[in-house]
Nucleic acid binder design. Structure first.
Lengths: 358, 358
DNA sequence: CTGAAAGCGCTTACAG
DNA sequence: CTGAAAGCGCTTACAG
């Protein structure tokens, strides 16, 4: 039973030096024997012995203050990373981030201290940027604070966003999924199956990822000289009515939730999926996320969709960030990467019904 | 397009001071306005303006060196925290850790940099304790490196283990599940259902959690003056034969895997669970973990078991660690907490068959 | 109310 | 080969 009540005291190089009868600088030299030969063998031995006796460990703060780099990558998320449910939006992204950080020899700093304002975490607190603790930072989250993003760009703080982001303050480095291309490809697939009335159902609010999907859809419409029909998700049954009225044979919907709703409405009206209506989902649901959905009771549907390479996005973002820190990537230059999303053939897309007018 | 090629240079208090026309110390005072009144309003305003202009952020290394805490909690795990599968051993623990860190205003530093030696992460690298970057550290993992643990205790580094741990170097702070009590309670439940031959099936290797379960089992046996029958998991069919030979009516098994194996063997021999054989599992499987098991094809079984309060263990560990850092908990004293594990009544335990000799 | 100074633990030129 | 010194960015007594 220890009765020592004083706070744990760090052993310093100075103490080691005193024990070994050398100068503090000598201890540092022995510790960082990059050149190896500069220290006399007996001196080295004495120092090493003292090192052992005291159980000295470097104070990384001191070393880093001197050396600048912390080899710490920040990870900023707008919500909790480890949620209480099984649902985990961040999991796959962070898997890639962790893996690559480990490979690059960086520690990961999760910013949990800022607390939440209006239920969301903040980068800036009392005018100071918490992220500065880390050498650089990966940011991710479904929601983005525009002001904070602009400010981050302004500051020239090294960071990489996961998911395409735009800022009026300048170019933003990001690693996103190429939703435009993937949406266009899915549209193309429908076209080749004979569908001539393909609608888009997506979010109303304008985020980059929603815009990209719409761009892909519009691009495909233009190519086939078809008038686009882009609907908003606010009222599922209104959307469904509209699809019927316009004799739409296939719908590209932004999320699995919307797809589930549409699917249910179709079933209730006696329409079969995919025989009467094909449904393509614009991005797979993170498998770990599914279980928390209110709609989980719905029998599992094998959606036709495209795969968002979440893990790859994470690791790629780390590689870019480390490149920025090393100076390989010019700090003024921002890296913008869109990763391809592979098509997933499910059972919700089939040939267009022949009865439908073309 | 920016053509600036110089590396991002940190803004220091000195620069802010120059801009504001005050001393560097003044900037620090404005930043840490604990008393509030000491700085003249106009001076404060000038400094704050300069702060904003320069986008200054505190350099945590400098602050820490000065003696102030960084409000960073380390999290050390022996394996990757975000695995590639859906399986996630750490998830629930980390959920609690994150939540409580957020509440306490600490950031979380995940140690991913040490790389792996023999496939496992290491606390000590080149003789120095990597955890020292953080103010204190939470450690967790199914496997523990005994030498590292001993050394950590020796160093008096502030840390809390999740899961009971013992060290010859001295007392270890931990938050574990009270497996002994829970096992005894489960045994008691079986006894009250008429079971008189209850066997234990557990890991061969001696970890604290295995030992605790065995202790609980032995305690219950002693109380009822029954000879214990503790078997090892190495060969499932040998274990099963032994159970039959000894006319065991109920088995307490350490893991769900073992339970699944035993269950299958029972079915194959024409034994019904629980009518002919009751099976109690000594700790619920983390739900997020299940999906990666090779045995997942097995129809879901509603096991009788006890719930390991993983999330609570995480948050409690953080609270203890923060207490240590604040000095509320004497550093010499170690905190050792075992959280109760609630019994879960499933469908794998029933009354003892009457045909069996008592 | 403000400035000048000391010092946290370390690395790295710079003299001897 | 070794010691003394400077300085990384910061906070905090200590004088004015």
């Amino acid at each position: 039973m220890q009765h020592v009540t004083q706070r744990r005291k760090r052993v310093t190089q100075a103490e080691v030096a005193r024990l070994a009868g050398v100068s503090q600088a000598m201890v540092s030299l022995v510790l960082n024997d990059s050149d190896g030969v500069r220290v006399a063998p007996e001196t080295r031995k004495r120092v090493e012995e003292a090192l052992r006796q005291t159980g000295y460990t470097v104070d990384i703060m001191g070393r880093r203050l001197r050396g600048k780099s912390n080899r710490i990558l920040g990870v900023f998320t707008y919500e909790a990373v480890f949620p209480s449910g099984t649902a985990d939006f961040y999991g796959p992204f962070l898997g890639g981030i962790e893996e690559e950080s480990e490979a690059q020899g960086f520690d990961l700093l999760l910013f949990t201290s800022p607390g939440r304002r209006q239920g969301r975490r903040k980068v800036y607190e009392k005018g100071s940027n918490r992220l500065g603790i880390a050498d650089g930072c990966i940011l991710l989250g479904r929601h983005t604070d525009r002001d904070e993003l602009d400010r981050l760009v302004d500051e020239r703080f090294p960071f990489v966003f996961i998911g395409r982001r735009e800022s009026s303050a300048g170019p933003v480095s990001y690693v996103g999924g190429d939703y435009a291309a993937a949406t266009a490809a899915l549209h193309e697939r429908l076209w080749s199956l004979g569908h001539r009335r393909v609608a888009l159902v997506g979010y109303r609010e304008e985020s980059e990822s929603t815009a990209d999907r719409r761009d892909g859809y519009l691009r495909a419409c233009r190519r086939h000289r078809k008038t686009p029909l882009a609907l908003t998700d606010v009222d599922p049954s209104a959307v469904f009515e509209r699809l019927r009225a316009d004799r739409v044979t296939a719908a590209l919907v932004e999320t699995t939730e919307m797809a589930v709703a549409l699917h249910a409405l179709a079933m209730n009206s006696g329409l079969r999926v995919p025989e009467d209506l094909s449904i393509g989902v614009l991005g797979d649901t993170d498998p770990t996320q599914t279980s928390s959905w209110p709609l989980r009771a719905t029998p599992e549907i094998d959606w036709t969709t495209f795969r968002i390479p979440r893990r790859e996005m994470g690791s790629r973002a780390v590689r870019i960030l480390v490149g920025m820190l090393r100076g390989d990537i010019e700090p003024g230059r921002r890296s913008q990467v869109l990763l391809p999303c592979e098509l997933v053939d499910g059972s919700t897309v089939a040939e267009a019904p022949r009865t439908t007018a073309r």
